[in-house]
């Protein structure tokens, strides 16, 4: 494949992939002692980076609820249901769906990618979900 930048030029349509790596722009990169660094207090980007905390009562209850539902779908003696699992995930993966992933940010990433795709096939974005990549390769 050709190596394409995450972001090509300054068009408004080319920035979606950048949202996924802004933490690198903030926390990585060259730091020079002689230069002043801007205060990061109140930074907007952190709003999309709030990770769902796994260790919380809400999560426990949600997991319990989800497991209950999963078992009902798979049948009482098929809790292990991995064959169905593979089918389910392949299907949802092909749609680029990450709903229910343990991360709000993942949903944001997915939404951003949908926006990119919605702008038409000609728009190159260097950000690839490997799920969609698999789909491309299988076609």
């Amino acid at each position: 494949m050709s190596v394409v930048p995450v972001q090509q030029g300054g068009g408004a349509g080319g920035t979606s992939g950048l949202y996924d790596v802004l933490e690198l722009v903030l926390d990585r990169g060259l730091v020079i002692d002689a230069f002043v660094r801007v205060s990061l207090v109140g930074i907007e980007i952190l709003k999309i980076d709030v990770r769902v905390v796994v260790a919380s009562v809400d999560t426990y209850l949600r997991f319990a609820e989800a497991c209950n539902r999963l078992d009902l779908e798979a049948g009482p003696h098929k809790s292990a249901g991995l064959p169905e699992l593979v089918g389910d995930v392949t299907e949802s993966g092909a749609r680029g769906k990450t709903k229910g992933a343990l991360s709000g940010a993942a949903q944001t990433v997915s939404d951003a990618l949908h926006q990119v795709r919605g702008r038409g096939e000609g728009q190159e974005s260097g950000t690839r979900r490997s799920a969609s990549r698999k789909k491309e390769e299988s076609e």
């Binding site: 993942a106 490997s130 990549r133 698999k134 390769e137």
Partner: peptide, 19 residues
């Protein structure tokens, strides 16, 4: 990355680059 995801369907990887 694609192979990892295929073999581990409970794992979702997103790749960003080149940066």
């Amino acid at each position: 990355t694609g192979r990892l995801e295929k073999e581990n369907p409970h794992v979702a990887l997103s790749v960003h680059g080149p940066l």
